[in-house]
């Protein structure tokens, strides 16, 4: 049994997410309003929309890093509402364009910190490194990695520190076709383990996913 199914079939909370009448504004521009969305465990949702429509902002609102001007983000575990701060600290992964890797440190150091910070174990990290074929890259400084290699390094954190809700901002864009397929399998395994994927995308995800259009702005 490969790594992602092993780490994800363990005891993990079943989290549901509901967004109600959400409105988000950046500066004096309203990106979208009246957005409703319910996501169940095992479900993937593609957020689609033009550049600047508010997909990334929506992910940050769901993560609790950005406050909506109206509406609510609600995480539930077994019918019990979760505190936003607790959900963020224990149940969410956010993978954005800025991955938090310091370019002058080695990939190994940076990954070990991120995995430890998010509550993952060393064994799970080693398994994630094997799954994403990162072994040869670990001794390199992060600045020497290509965009796709860097994205795989960031994905290793998601595998090594199991959290049910994955908020992904164009997760596949820098990856080649081989790794797009591999990551598709990883996402599929995450969903089968009861996880949830909310991904801002321009190309369709390689897994069955509901589509949620965001905003109208061009």
């Amino acid at each position: 049994m490969d790594i992602e199914s092993r780490s994800q079939h363990g005891v993990r909370p079943m989290i549901t997410l509901s967004l109600k009448d959400l409105a988000v504004r950046r500066g004096d521009r309203t990106l979208f309003e009246g957005l409703d969305l319910d996501v169940a465990p095992g479900e993937a949702v593609s957020l689609t929309g033009a550049n600047g429509a508010g997909k990334s902002s929506l992910l940050r609102v769901v993560a609790g890093l950005l406050a909506p001007v109206a509406g609510a983000v609600r995480f539930e575990e077994g019918g019990q509402a979760l505190e936003p701060a607790e959900a963020r600290a224990r149940h969410l992964h956010l993978l954005g364009h800025q991955d938090g890797f310091r370019s002058g440190r080695t990939a190994a150091d940076e990954l070990a910190f991120q995995v430890g910070w998010c509550g993952g174990t060393v064994e799970a990290m080693e398994a994630a490194v094997r799954r994403l074929a990162l072994g040869a890259l670990l001794p390199l400084e992060v600045r020497r990695l290509s965009a796709g290699q860097r994205r795989r390094l960031a994905l290793a954190r998601l595998l090594a520190a199991p959290r049910p809700v994955w908020l992904l901002d164009e997760p596949l864009s820098p990856l080649d076709s081989h790794w797009r397929a591999e990551v598709g399998q990883i996402l599929q395994a995450h969903l089968e383990g009861g996880g949830m994927v909310l991904a801002a995308v321009h190309d369709p995800l390689p897994i069955p996913a509901r589509t949620c259009p965001v905003g109208g702005a061009a």
Binding site: A63, G64, L65, A85, R88, A89, L92, H93, L94, G96, H97, Q98, D99, G100, F101, R102, S103, Q114, W117, C118, G119
Partner: peptide, 18 residues
């Protein structure tokens, strides 16, 4: 400032410390 620029601050917000 560098943590802000490279996204580390977002990551730190997703961890165990207030």
């Amino acid at each position: 400032e560098r943590d802000f620029e490279d996204g580390t601050l977002d990551l730190l917000a997703m961890g165990p410390l207030a």
